[in-house]
Structures are given as C-alpha cells and as structure tokens.
Design a protein around this nucleic acid. Structure first.
Lengths: 222, 222
DNA sequence: CATTTATTCAATATTTTTATTGAATAGACG
DNA sequence: CGTCTATTCAATAAAAATATTGAATAAATG
C-alpha cells in the first residue's frame, strides 16, 4: 500500500463516520440517545418520523458503530456506543452554535418571542450549588431522568409541571434543565415558573453536557 | 414558528455544517489547513485532486463558513475560520480512531510494515521537555513550520532530512512530529533516524493537537 | 402453533452529491 | 491596456442519499 492509498483509506473512514451523522434527523436522534436508551417507536415519535424511516436512519448509525442495541421484550432500545459519540456531536453543535448565524438567529428569534429569560451556564450552576441553596429541576420525560440526571435534581416532566408547582420552593432559586441548548422544555418551564412567581432560570446546556464534563450525576435504576 | 419547525431549522443547520465535512477529500483538506494557510494550487497538489475539484470542495467549506480566504498577489490562501473547526475535526478523528476497527487496522498494518517504532503522546512529550534534554523535530514543509510550530522545535522537512542528519544530536533523544496521527512524515523520519543510529521516536499526534491544548508554540513570521 | 407487535427489509422515485471537462473571471503585472 | 495566471464557474453525467410504501421478519404471548 502506498501513501496515497493509505490516506484514501483513512480519510474515507473518517468521512464515513461523519456522513453517518450528517443528516438533520440523525443529528436529532443522537441528541435524543445522549439522554439514554430509547426504543425505535419512541425515537420515531420524538422526531416526527415514520417508523420505517426512523429505523432506516438507525441502521445508518448502527453501521457506523455510533449506536448499539439492547432488546427488552418486544422492544429494541438504541443507545450511543460510548462517550466519544456525544463528544463529537457536541463539537459539531458548538461549531454550529458559534459559527452559523442562521442557527443563532433562529434560536434567539424563537426564544425571544416567548422565552426571553436569563440562562445559567454549567460553570455558574456548579458555583451556585457550592455556595448556596438551589433547586435543580429536570423537566425531561421521566424515563430520561431515571437513566441519569444531575445529582440532587428533582424530576417534574414538563407536561406535569403546571399541576405540580406546589412541590417547588417559592424562595430558593430554581434552575431548570432538559436535553441541551436547543431543548425547549426548559424554556417552557422557566416561563411557567416565572409567571407563577418563582425565581427560575434555565441551564444553557443539557444533561449530557453536564455528564460528559464528569460532574456528579445520579441514576435511578432501570 | 412551532417547536417542530424550530427543531427542523436547528438540526438542519447542524447537518449542513456536518455535511460540509463529510467527504474524504474535505476531511483531508481540513487537516491540511489546520497546519496554516495554504493556496488552492498547493491544496490540490497535496491531496492529489484536480484544481477545479479542489476549488469546488473549498467552496463547500467556505459556504459552511469553516474556512476563510486571504488573497496574496496572484494566489488565494485558505485557512480554517477558527479553532472550533479543528476541534470538531479532531473529535470526529478521535471517534474514528477509537471506534472503527478498519481505520486502526489500516493504520497499524501500514505502519507495521515499515515503521514499527514507539511513539510518544503529547503528555509524555511535555514531561520529557520538563525533565531533561530533548530535541523536537518538525518534519513538515517549511511553510507550515513557519506558520506555527512546537516551541523550540527544529525544522527539517522530510525531503531534506537525509542530507541534514549532521545537524541533529547523536546523544539526546529526538521526537519527530508532523501534521497528525495519520501523517507519515514523522514515521519516515524516525525510520531514517533510527537507521542512522539516532535515538528517535514520533509524536503520536500532530502540531494542531499540541496547539489546541494551549501548549507553547512559536511562529516564524510571514 | 398461531397471532400479535415492534422492527427491519426491499423496491422505487426523488433529490443531492460528486467528478469531469472546458470556459469564464478576476486580479496582478508588464 | 493587454496578457498572464490562479481560481472559480457552469454544464453534464454518474453515483449516493433520502423518503415512501408495503411486505417480511423475529421475538413474545396466548
């Protein structure tokens, strides 16, 4: 094998992996799987895809070894193969957030209309935890919370929040988080909480970002 | 705009950026540009592409704002827009190196045949620098060295190495590096040096990896 | 063993990406 | 101003990715 053939092999493989991520639906699926195991049915529902279509995209990710499966009874659950998959996804996301005006504008525009509240970075949250009383609120679906959440976070899925406001403290500051910077659940939660007189902000990023930094998490079994 | 439209926009943009990297030639071009500015002509030569073809790929990267241009006389030089581009590329590379058996096998197979020498990680090199005498050898083309190199590294491009061996010390250990883990120049250099009785190893990664970690670098003007 | 259910496969039409070729452009330089 | 040169553009053919549909599969359950 000569140098050129060697390079073609190497960059070909790198491109193959990159291609397997290079699709809007698959980018969304990866973010979803970064929360934990999810069944095909659920992935399709969350991403508004026909099941056959979701399955097809999952096959692409599986072929690139970005995801693994785990059969549980009648369901097949998909999960990310390892941390590096999320790290690569995150690097691409950071690149997107930083570079592409279009995304920033879209995010900002969408948020400004309904949810123009302050947000808290991971570093700031770490400080708040160390230096005072604070309530951390996980508004993702319960299955995601169970599979891993920020240590000491309380779980109230966004759909239940309006009915369960009394479980939250009026005085101490609340930081709500969900799947990541594009996840709207946290925005909706903060809007609802502020409206109801709570002191609330959202976490800029999400649970997988927290976890990948090695910060303390808890798992509620499964 | 509803939630689904918002998501479609966001993940669409992320996929657009990812797609712009998702091609073997463009993966190679990005690695090359991580060394510094390079003209279209040179990019085409280094990647064995017809010039029109290289230009086309560069347009794709430019549209995604991954690269910027800088006209110098008759030539147009391309460079990465910022550090995050290399970071994302690196994350994908790490994913590839770690995940895909194919890449590992190809790399190993190719190296074993001719270049089965020990290599040194960046952390190990840092230690060696702190704790003793060591010669760091940059075997990339001189233009790349000039645009940035590991602090105190000596430049001897691989093509000149055989004629310039006398410039190197026989006693102190030599660590040769080039563009990255897939760059063969460092392997060739180590092979040549060991053959000639020097004590030499290659750096596992390359200059951009060193730089992105914030380790000391030098620039020779331009 | 037959049925149910979640998932995958297969076939096809559509769209997008890529390579190739030759012409066009834009700036430098005499 | 005209020429030269590096780069880009444009047109086309070929290859690959994607969406859609309905059928096939494989495991669980009665």
């Amino acid at each position: 094998m000569n140098k050129r053939q060697f390079k073609d092999k190497v960059y070909g493989e790198l491109a193959r992996i990159t291609k397997s991520m290079a699709n809007p639906h698959r980018m969304e699926i990866i973010e979803l799987l970064a929360q934990g195991e999810v069944s095909v049915e659920e992935i399709a529902a969350q991403t508004n895809l026909p099941i056959a279509n979701a399955s097809q995209h999952l096959q692409v990710l599986k072929q690139a070894q970005l995801v693994e499966i785990n059969r549980q009874g009648n369901f097949i659950f998909y999960r990310l193969s390892n941390d590096n998959v999320f790290k690569a996804w995150k690097a691409l996301r950071d690149l997107g957030v930083e570079r592409i005006v279009a995304v920033e504008n879209v995010v900002r525009e969408f948020r400004k209309s309904k949810f123009d509240f302050e947000s808290v970075t991971i570093d700031e949250l770490v400080e708040k935890i160390e230096s005072g009383k604070i309530t951390i609120l996980d508004v993702r679906p319960e299955s995601e919370y169970k599979q891993g959440h920020i240590a000491n976070a309380v779980s109230i899925p966004i759909e239940e929040l309006s009915k369960r406001l009394k479980e939250l403290p009026k005085r101490t500051e609340i930081v709500a988080y969900c799947r990541g910077p594009f996840c709207v659940y946290a925005d909706e939660a903060v809007a609802m909480l502020v409206q109801a007189g709570f002191k609330a902000k959202r976490l800029t990023e999400g649970f997988p970002d927290w976890k990948v930094q090695g910060l303390p998490i808890e798992v509620s079994m499964n």
